[in-house]
Amino acid sequence: MRIGDYKESYAADEAVFSTPTSRFWLGVLFAAMAAFPFFAGDYLLYMANITGIAIVAALGLNILTGATGQISLGHAAFIGIGAYTSAILTNRFGLPYLLCLPLAGLAAAFFGILVGAPSMRMKGLYLCITTLAAQVIFEFLFVHWETLTGGIRGLNVPAPEVFGLKIDSEFSFYWITAVVVIIAATVSRNLFRTRMGRAFIAIRDRDISAELMGINLFRYKLYAFAISSFLAGIAGSLWVGHLRSITPEHFPLHESIRYLAMIIVGGLGNILGAIYGAIFMTMIPELLQSVLKYFESMFPQAMAFLFPLQTVVFGLLIVVFLVFEPHGLAEIWCRIKNFFRLWPFKH
């Protein structure tokens, strides 16, 4: 139980991990992340990698849609831009992977600013439609600009090399994913401790009074678009490094919607929420599948009927979530923490 909460400076009061307990658990988390690959098999490491990539992208969308309130249906396209940029820079110019990562982010950020430009005049659902248009346009380009993107056959890239080491296994790529996830989460958290993050939330909550408070709406919306698609581009570059091949099929509209679902299930505008949402949306389908596999051994004939059911169950889970916990997984976590703060006393 945590009794009293004495702080002696404002810096201590504003720290993210403000109590020894929370710093202890952060240490435990890092230790667990570092130990994980030595115990996990290839399949689990693969899951960890794609979850990490999803986390980075979801953190990005969370800044734009969750915090700034600009609904984007084009997030998958920005991930795609990052992925193609990274692949093209590797194949044509032979740039090292660690350089491709930020460049992919910058390329995506550039297009993010272009797509965000209409936000000067439009907001809400109308802006949402322009992001949908961006999704469609970029998907079209991925397929038809064959000289650059390889058309529907896509591009293959060699295994990335970092400091002379070949990153060609799930085990080795795990370290890259882990570091990028930690950086992305730190950077997002920092953003909301300062003026820029506050401006984003102000624009979401009440844009008119935000402007009268001295916030240049257009500039800050563009910042949100840029940061969000920068993270998407990084996620795309991670994707390429991990799978070593891309096709346009990897970045369809329903992937954009899946990212929206992640941040909604996790908790809009909440950094932990984006992380939980990404984990939930990547792990649950896999979990459902392994449960079904287990039943398959018992009732071999039932599979034909059960297999499509996993999509239904997945959808149902999301609906149940939104009905009973509209603030997402982050809110549940908050309640659990508050419960243990007073435990074992009730008040």
């Binding site: 003026r195 506050r198 939330i201 102000a202 909550d205 935000a210 408070m213 001295g214």
Partner: peptide, 17 residues
């Protein structure tokens, strides 16, 4: 016209933007 998603402190800080 406060920003409802923020704490009192953050609302005030926003004024200094």
């Amino acid at each position: 016209a406060l920003f409802h998603g923020m704490t009192v402190l953050d609302n005030i800080k926003l004024g200094s933007h």
